[in-house]
Amino acid sequence: MKRTSVKSTDTDDRQRLNKPRGRVNAYFTHHLWVLVSSLGVLWRTPLATLMTAAVIGIALALPTGLHVLLQNVQQLSMGWEGTAQMSLFLKPGVPEKRIQSLADKLRGWDGVAEVQYISREQALAEFRELSGFGGALDSLDENPLPAVLVLRPTTEATEPAQMALLLGKVQKLESVDLAQLDMEWVRRLSGIIEVGKRGVLLLGGLLALAILLVVGNTIRLTILSRSQEIIVTKLIGATNTFIRRPFLYTGFWYGLMGAVLAWLLVAILLGLLSDPVSRLSFLYSSEFSLDGLELETVIILLGSGIALGLMGSWLAVGRHLQAIEPT
């Protein structure tokens, strides 16, 4: 065995060590090293890692995908809301002149952009053309359709409350038999969308809990399988923070991988849907096409994936690291 003299360079070592920059550098280097090495450890068991990441990915993809779809439906219905209009069905037998003066009066109201008069004859012609029940109409003695005033509000007046106010006002008019808001269903739809959004949020919450448990359990198993190593490092003088670090980074990687996987999944699903949706909207002579993932959504997705991974591992580490002590 080689016998070398032991030179004590302790003092200058201590001085070098105490330089703050050196300390900080060493600290960051260590963090970087743990970050990379924890990824390396995961890389060595690709199948197990992929399976855990896939569970997280699917759990994240579900609410994300639903959110994107809801956003698209909302986009679509917002286009319709602008075209809200009111139909005033007039009482039979109101003379043409009075209808004209009523239309003029309505045009002067606040919040009314346009009033269109559809006479009984026009309505009949339109019905005959569009409904395909022309033959049935021929067998009737007289025109069963009422005259209609179509009222289009100004854009400021499309607010639901103002629409309701306007509706109340026109309903009280003497010649009006029935006033009807044509776009009522659009509002119902947006109500349904609100319910859907809340549902996505609740579903997301439940799945977030599932992710916490999956990550927590995976990290717990890792901790147990490395308990000998943890004991040895504790004996050497490692702090809990030091021991916790690689496990937290492992959780970080699981979360990030899961989120990226979810991103991919949603992108693929949207890609698969976009063609049929375009074809469908073409049939409705609409220019609508599916919007993809917004940057904001992607950032939130990645952020919550990482946060859940870190939290899951934090829970596991907090519970199980304390229990492993040298004896």
Binding site: M1, K2, T4, G22, R23, N25, I236, G237, A238
Partner: peptide
């Protein structure tokens, strides 16, 4: 490991580890 736990700088770690391994042959 003990040096990394204590937060030594990379270059310092290499130097000391080699010194310690040299001592034990």
């Amino acid at each position: 490991l003990p040096l990394i736990i204590a937060g030594y700088h990379q270059s310092e770690v290499g130097r000391r580890v080699r010194a310690a391994l040299d001592k034990v042959g």
